[in-house]
Structure formats: C-alpha cells, structure tokens
Nucleic acid binder design. Structure first.
Length: 469
RNA sequence: UGGGAGGUCGUCUAACGGUAGGACGGCGGACUCUGGAUCCGCUGGUGGAGGUUCGAGUCCUCCCCUCCCAGCCA
C-alpha cells in the first residue's frame, strides 16, 4: 500500500510551493488508493508556533487536500508531531552510538562554527570527522555539560563511499565519495536534526514514497546513509522541481502573494489554485489544462513530473480563476462572494436579486474580490452624471415614454430607437451616456442585462437625477 | 572550497532519434454602447560551439547561465 506524507514546519503560512508538494502527494495517494499522511515537523523551537500549525491545516482543508493520518485525526503510527516523538529519536540515536555508527561530541555549537569558518577560509570544504572533536572530550568539559544540564550532540559517522539514488523525477543521481563529512543527528538541546528525524519517522511510519521539493535532493545523500545504518531499505524518492519568482529566484514574499491564505483572501478559488499548481512541473497525458480535482486524481502519475523549475505566473492563475468563477453554479458563487460584499460595506437584502447581479457581472471579474466594485451600482446610486446638452431632450422624452412600458428589453429598445431617430442622435453616443447615468462608469456589463435588472424605478430615478430634476 | 540539479516561444508545458505543437500573455479583427466575457487570426522558442547520425530539442564533448546542499533551520 502506498503511504505518502506532507511534512510542513509550522513556521509560517502554507506557501504555494508547499501546497504544490502536498497536492502531488495527495494526488498520488488517491490515485494509488493509498494513504496521505500529515506530519508536523516542529523541532525548530524558535520559529515553530501552534498558531501556524492550525493555519496550515486550515489551508490544506480549504484546498481540499484532506489527510488520512495526522495530529488531529490520529492514526496507527503516531504521534504525528515531531516534538512529541523525542524519546523515539533519542533511542534510535543511542542505538547508532552503541553500534559505533555515531558518536558524542562535547564541542559547543560556536566552537564548531569556528572550525567551519576556518575550513572555508582555507578554501576547504567544511567536512567534519570524529578526530576533529576529540580534543573537546575532557573530564572538565563533561562535568561542565552535566552542571549546565546539557547533552552532548550526536554526530553520525558518514561512510566515505559513493551513493546512488534512482530518483523518479531526476533519474540516476550519483553522490561521489567525500561529498559530505560527519553530520549532527541529535542537538545538544536534546532535539533531533531534520535529516535524522525525517528518516526515523519515514521508517516508522512506513512511508513508501517521498515526494518533495528538489531543494532536498542533496539532503537525500545523508538520508540514504542513515537508512543504510539502520539496515532498512529507503522509500522511493521523487524530487519535484522548485517554484521560482519572475526573476528566477525562489518564490518569496517580495514577488507578491505566496501563501494559500493570501490567495484565498484575494478571492481566488481552491479549484483554480489546485488546477494551476498541478500544472507547474506536471502535465496531463493529453495536454488538457482545465482539470477538476477528480480529473487530476484519475490522470495523475509520477512519470509525468518534469524536472525543470517553473516560474509562477500570476496572470495564468488569474485567467484560470476567472474561468472557474464563470462556470460555477450560481448558488455556490453567491455564498463565496458574500463575504467580499460585506467587507466592501454592501448589504445584500434580496438573495435572488443578488444572484442575478452576480450572473451578469461574473463576465467581468476574475477574482471574488473584484465583485463589489464591479457591481456596486446595482446596490447604491452612483453620483449623478452630467448629461450633454444635445442629449437632454432625448433623456427627458425617454423618461416620459418609458413610464408606462412593460419593463423588458423587447419593449424598451424600440422606444430607444424611436426617440433617437426623432432627435437624430447616434446610438453610440446615447448608449455611452446612458451607461454613465445608470452605472457611474464607462465600462461594465451589457446594458441589455443591466436595464431589466435595475428595474424601471431605479432607471427613471437615475435619469431624473442626471437631468437635474 | 566540495557535492548535486536544471536550461524548448515573455510564462507554463508537449514532441518513439523522424512535422517543434497546445495554453496563458501580447498584437489585430468580429461581436452595431463599453468591455476584463465569447469567437477568429497573428506574433513568438530548442542557451552557445563542436561531434555522432540519412536525420538531433532528444545521444556525446566543451563552454555559458540559473538553482540547491555542505545551519545544532527545515
């Protein structure tokens, strides 16, 4: 059975890059009838916050990427927060020490940093080995650690040999001998480092596939060595490409919105975001681009992941969002749009009227947040607009003649034509002026849709106000 | 300093060693009020140089550019 995991750190909001990784894991799990597991990697004590954990979950739920095992829903392989698994890591570290595959180090982090800088200044790679730390292991130093309640760090003895990774996306990757030196697996504060915790967890949680960003490709070398030390077969690895900003650098806040939450607040739909993200580094076998979550699940496969980085294109996402908006059932659209009207201070009194407004204006918006301003004239009178002198009589006559007309375009349009012809006014200029009188703007939905919905009373009132009556 | 990944229109992405195509964007047209909707058309690309081959985006070599790891962050 396929078991995959998404393992974010609760150090911020859900980034679209992480969301894309979660999405691929989710799609693969669902396609293979496997399990999608959420694991919280909260060993960075300074940056991790419970509030972020909750926000991450909220965003994943909003996207529709529901997990089968996790801190909230539990499961057979818990706990699902790394901070609750510290004893497990300690035991595994001690096992490696006993087997001679790891060792204690009594150097302070600052001392190690010094060694590192020295190596770099000498033009050498900052690789460590056990001999370098022996001088710190003295009775005085040990006593010191004990008095301060410190634990020695645990370093893993990195075997000096080649490692080969057959990655699903990247193909065969060879890590040459001497690529890295020994590395920390347990810190002096008693918490594990990323690579160690990751391997222990993936092993114990019986993860079959690790689908993650290729920024961790080089970390895989350490993890392969750890699997070997534990005498366990590693999972299948698939390193997906990185999402970059327009400048080719990693996508970050300086490029604009990067979190799922920010896009949600701007009025983007989960359907659109999921669809767009899925196409960054993956393609449908037939080249289809507009795909529901269900279609993504049925067509997804790891072998159609592409290895090159992708630049995030807000314009294509916005276009896609507009498409989903326009093709959504009006009832659902109404529910989703309401919060944006409330925020804009527009009161919705008549539900049916509201739906009709959305039906007309949706042609002209691409995100939910654009609805209020685009349709404000349906709910509030715009400031009166000056009618050009040569058209005042036209509007006066229309005001009179339309009083007793049944309010449909079939009966209204002939009146327009008749009056325009009588006054020798061109349709183009008339309609533009009418548009400004009714909406206060020069652009908007089609007048043939606006007029019936506004109703006779509002139509005539706005003409009257502009006539200065 | 050491190790690893990547490079196809502006962007995303397709192409058994055999026609470089699709989408978004941009430009133009149609839609007889406007237009962010709709329809039609155009524009536009294999980082560079060699090699192998009947034939190279694809295989090989060198060069260039970009990204990632070597944190007691993840």
């Amino acid at each position: 059975m396929v078991r995959v995991r998404f393992a974010p750190s609760p150090t911020g909001f859900l980034h679209v890059g992480g969301a894309r990784t979660a999405l691929f894991n989710f799609l693969f799990a669902r396609k293979e009838k496997g399990k999608f597991i959420l694991r919280i990697e909260d060993t960075d004590l300074e940056r991790s916050e419970r509030e972020y954990e909750e926000k991450l979950m909220e965003s994943l739920r909003w996207l529709g990427l529901l997990w089968d095992e996790g801190p909230d829903v539990g499961g057979d392989h818990g706990p699902y927060r790394q901070s609750e698994r510290v004893e497990i890591y300690r035991e595994h570290a001690e096992r490696l020490v006993k087997e001679g595959k790891a060792y204690y180090v009594y150097a302070y982090p600052e001392e190690i940093e010094e060694m590192r800088e020295k190596l770099l200044s000498e033009g050498k790679a900052p690789h460590y080995s056990q001999e370098m730390f022996e001088k710190f292991d003295t009775p005085e130093r040990r006593r010191e650690y004990e008095e301060k309640g410190l634990r020695p760090a645990v370093f893993f003895k990195m075997p000096r040999k080649d490692y080969v990774l057959n990655d699903v996306v990247k193909g065969e990757v060879v890590f040459k001998t001497g690529a890295i030196g020994d590395f920390v697996i347990m810190r002096s504060n008693g918490l594990p480092t990323y690579n160690f915790a990751c391997v222990v967890d993936d092993m114990l949680m019986e993860i079959t596939h690790v689908i993650r960003g290729d920024d961790h490709l080089s970390n895989t070398l350490r993890q392969l060595a750890l699997y070997e030390a534990f005498e366990k077969a590693p999972p299948v690895f698939a390193h997906v490409s990185t999402i970059l900003g327009p400048d080719g650098k990693k996508l970050s806040k300086r490029h604009g919105a990067t979190s799922v939450e920010a896009f949600r607040d701007m009025g983007y739909l989960p359907e659109a975001l999921v669809n767009y993200l899925a196409l960054l580094g993956w393609s449908h076998p037939e080249g289809k681009e507009l795909l529901t979550l269900e279609e993504l699940i049925s067509s997804f496969s790891l072998d159609r992941l592409s290895p090159n980085p992708a630049i995030f294109d807000p314009q294509k996402l916005k276009w896609m969002n507009g498409y989903y908006l326009r093709n959504m059932p009006i009832e659902k659209l109404a529910e989703l749009a309401k919060p944006f009207f409330e925020k804009a201070g527009i009161k919705i009194i008549d539900e049916e009227y509201f739906k009709k407004v959305l039906e007309i204006t949706k042609e002209r918006v691409e995100v939910l947040s654009e609805f209020p301003e685009e349709s404000r004239f349906f709910f509030e009178d715009p400031a009166p607009v000056e009618i050009p002198e040569e058209m005042k009589e036209v509007f006066s006559q229309l005001k009179e003649e339309l009083q007793n007309v049944r309010w449909t375009m079939e009966e209204i349009t002939p009146v327009f034509k008749k009056v325009l012809k009588q006054h020798g006014v061109k349709p183009k200029e008339f309609y533009m002026t009418l548009r400004r009188v009714l909406t206060g703007r020069e652009e908007g939905p089609e007048l043939v849709n606006i007029i019936p919905l506004l109703g006779k009373e509002i139509f005539l009132r706005r003409i009257e106000r502009s006539l200065g009556g």
